[in-house]
Amino acid sequence: MIVLIANYHCRQGMGDKVEEALREMIPLVEQEKGCLQYLVNRSKDNPDVFLLFEQYEDEEALARHSETAYFQRIIRNTVIPLLDKRERTLYTPVKP
Results as ranks from 00 to 15, higher is better:
Val40Gln: 06
Gln55His: 15
Val94Cys: 10
Leu83Asp: 10
Pro96Leu: 09
His9Ala: 10
Val40Thr: 13
Gly34Pro: 06
Ile80His: 10
Asn7Leu: 09
Ile75Gln: 12
Val18Pro: 03
Arg86Met: 05
Thr89Val: 06
Leu39His: 07
Pro93Asn: 04
Ser43Val: 08
Gln37His: 11
Ile80Ser: 09
Tyr56Lys: 01
Leu82Cys: 14
Pro27His: 11
Arg11Cys: 02
Met1His: 04
Ala69Met: 05
Leu36Ala: 04
Tyr56Glu: 01
Asn77Val: 08
Lys95Asn: 00
Thr68Ala: 09
Ile5Asn: 12
Phe53Gly: 01
Gly34Arg: 10
Arg73Met: 03
Arg23Trp: 08
His9Met: 08
Val29Cys: 14
Gly34Lys: 07
Gln12Ser: 12
Val18Ile: 10
Thr78Trp: 11
Leu4Gln: 14
Glu24Gly: 00
Phe50Cys: 07
Ile5Gly: 10
Pro81Tyr: 09
Glu57Gly: 07
Leu28Ala: 04
Ile74Met: 07
Arg76Ile: 14
Arg88Tyr: 02
Ile26Asp: 01
Lys33Trp: 06
Asp45Tyr: 09
Ser66Val: 00
Ala61Trp: 03
Ser43Glu: 05
Arg42Gln: 13
Leu52Glu: 11
Val3Asp: 05
Met14Asn: 13
Gln12Ile: 08
Lys33Val: 15
Ala63Thr: 08
Asp16Val: 08
Asp45Glu: 09
Ala63Gln: 07
Gln12Asn: 08
Pro96Tyr: 11
Ala61His: 04
Ala21His: 01
Asp16Glu: 12
Ala6Asn: 07
Ala69Glu: 12
Tyr38Phe: 14
Leu28His: 02
Gln37Gly: 01
Thr68Gln: 11
Asn7Cys: 05
Ala61Leu: 03
Arg76Gly: 06
Ile5Val: 12
Val49Leu: 05
Ala21Met: 01
Glu30Phe: 02
Phe50Gly: 09
Arg73Val: 04
Lys17Glu: 11
Phe53His: 05
Gln31Ala: 06
Lys95Glu: 04
Ile2Gly: 00
Asn41Gln: 12
Thr92Ile: 00
Arg73Gly: 00
Gly13Gln: 02
Ala63Ile: 03
Arg86Tyr: 07
Cys35Asn: 15
Phe50Ser: 06
Leu22Gln: 04
Asp16Met: 11
